[in-house]
Design a protein around this nucleic acid. Structure first.
Lengths: 347, 347
DNA sequence: CTTTAGCACTCAGGTAGAGAGAGTGCTAAT
DNA sequence: ATTAGCACTCTCTCTACCTGAGTGCTAAAG
């Protein structure tokens, strides 16, 4: 069942008006916004139809209409004009994304914050490996008799290092052997395999060497597991308090604690660069009254990230979607740039 | 002018009752909480005195009394019984603080979060060097022709490393020279001095070497500057929404945005291990209606951190102070432990 | 001089009712 | 198919009123 053009136009007006005012929209207002070609009475008839069809709702008998989730869905799928970002906006995004941001975590938290203040809703960001992360290379730097620095190179040009205090005295001559052992037996394999191999080499090396080795491997496994697991960063949760739908502290509190706590259960995009979940389309109960707009971005070749916005179902989908995908593109570009030319360091 | 014991006792009851109920306290309730030795009429006379003296306030003529900031101050200084943490609480703090937390930033954010959920108020945490941070040692690890890993040891056993892509081809034979140069001329000095020395050695080395050197130093300066500047982490801002005084979204929003934005201007303790600022004692306008409890902790020998709690003036100072100083002690212990024994790695 | 009982007084908060206004739904005319 | 007109509905706001908690004061008792 396809809607007439006029019904669609009316739906569009209702959505856009409600999005900006948060008040139910009446027939009169709609009529005035439609170049005056029809009267409010006609609109009323059409509105009644749209309610019957499930695209609109009425808070009470004598109020205007608000869009239902189905209505928003239709709007997002067909009626919404995909916005292009203005030059100024693109500029602002790029500016927000540049700066001294070395570590992955830091980049994405900062990106989340910037995005949040740009769309005026809370955001969340994740980065997750498409594949598992492996250690590509180990190095050891002696510090003193009892400690050394372990340096690990992971995939995707990331480097992790830490000072490790050994239980045993370190022998200068053991170090090269240890490094060789690490690089020949423990690179490019999973953490489970690392633990297995550790056991299997136990008999081939001296007990001291084994102790050193196992301490180093323990650190390596930690690092890899941390790098592989996805962590979710949220930002700007307090933006919610500006919205009339969260004026009662109860609701706001619920959603905000959800955002800051249950970092695991935020929605992830099934596929494609962008996805919008409207109200009850969200599986998670805490998000039933809200909508989520998500965009994914690439981190180099083997990782992928997600940046999402949480807001009321009454959300300016067009603008949010445009800005968010602007951010996602910006991030992809940022991470794609493998070469670090001069300007990236000097500022 | 010293208060009589009875007045003090009444003030104590008012504070403690108001803290737990958030409702003005009436004479009847006070009388019943004071072993029935005096009648409510007597209490009323005393209350009138306390209002005159500025320790209590009356929201309106026929309401009970609430403590004024001065009243809270007297309570905190004299009347409050310093609480001891229960064994279970100490246990919980220690548990919250342990776990895999390698990097300083991560430790303190996690500590802040744990503290927040423990005291049920928002918290903020900082770490700042008592002295400036210097590079103690440099190392370079060749990766390929154009890139190497720079490893820096800072004071306090911290290690920073990053992959650096050089504009020039790297010559294996240059590396030891470069490392020597770095360690002999650029360790244990300020960043300004580093930049000066860079210029001064310019003529003594080959142009290629100078380019490599300056790229490395640029990275080093960045790292040091970042390590030296204090960053403030806040956590649990949404805890505010549970409190009746922040049920109106307007106020809550103001304070919450202040907490998440103006990370610079949060109060720092003048000295001593613990400080409490009540309501108008706060210099910052955004905190005039709130109280702040702060405790400081040591990070090894040359750094100091601060952990603070923001809440309504009606705050359970005794409990918050006890728990917060528990956290501060825990952190000091955590960072004091320079030796990393077995159990710290294996869990 | 301190404490207490008694009582009139005050004020916030809740409840009920009236009125206004926005918006609908329906009918009848175009 | 569209529109004008009109009665109807429902929320929101304003006001008046009542209730109850708690005070301040006075006068009596310890």
């Amino acid at each position: 069942m396809e809607l007439t053009d006029r019904k669609k136009q009316i739906l569009k007006v209702v959505v856009e008006d409600y999005v900006s005012t948060a008040e139910p929209v009446g027939s009169k207002v709609i009529a005035s916004q439609m170049d005056g070609s029809v009267s409010s009475a006609t609109i009323r008839n059409e509105l009644a139809d749209l309610v019957d069809l499930g695209y609109l709702e009425q808070p009470h008998t004598s109020a205007g209409r608000i869009p239902s989730p189905t209505g928003y869905r239709l709007y997002v799928n067909e009626l919404m004009e995909r916005q292009r970002l203005s030059l100024a906006e693109t500029e602002r995004i790029n500016q927000a994304l540049q700066g001294k941001m070395e570590e992955l975590d830091r980049v994405i938290t900062q990106a989340g914050r910037a995005a949040s203040s740009f769309v005026n809703y809370p955001t969340y960001v994740t980065a997750a490996g498409k594949n598992r992360v492996y250690a590509h290379r180990f190095d050891l730097l002696a510090v003193d008799e009892h400690s050394c620095i372990v340096v690990m190179m992971l995939g995707n040009n990331r480097v992790k290092s830490q000072l490790l205090r050994m239980q045993l005295k370190l022998d200068k001559e053991q170090m090269p052997t240890l490094v060789n052992l690490l690089n020949s037996h423990f690179t490019n394999i999973s953490t489970e395999e690392m633990n297995r191999r550790l056991l299997s080499v136990a008999e081939q090396v001296s007990p001291q060497m084994f102790l050193l080795l196992s301490q180093t491997i323990a650190y390596g496994v930690d690092v890899l597991e941390e790098a592989g697991q996805k962590e979710v960063f949220t930002a700007g949760a307090n933006q919610l308090l500006k919205l009339p739908e969260f004026r009662n502290a109860e609701k706001a509190h619920q959603l905000m604690s959800f955002l800051s706590d249950s970092k695991e259960s935020l929605p992830l995009p099934d596929e494609g660069p962008m996805q919008i979940l409207i109200g009850p389309e969200n599986v998670n109960a805490a998000l039933r009254d809200t909508s989520v707009v998500m965009a994914s971005y690439d981190i180099g070749d083997d990782m992928r990230g997600l940046i999402g916005v949480v807001g009321p179902t009454r959300m300016d989908y067009a603008t949010v979607a445009a800005r968010l995908s602007g951010f996602a593109d910006g991030l992809t570009r940022l991470f794609g740039k493998k070469e670090l030319p001069e300007e990236q360091r000097n500022e």
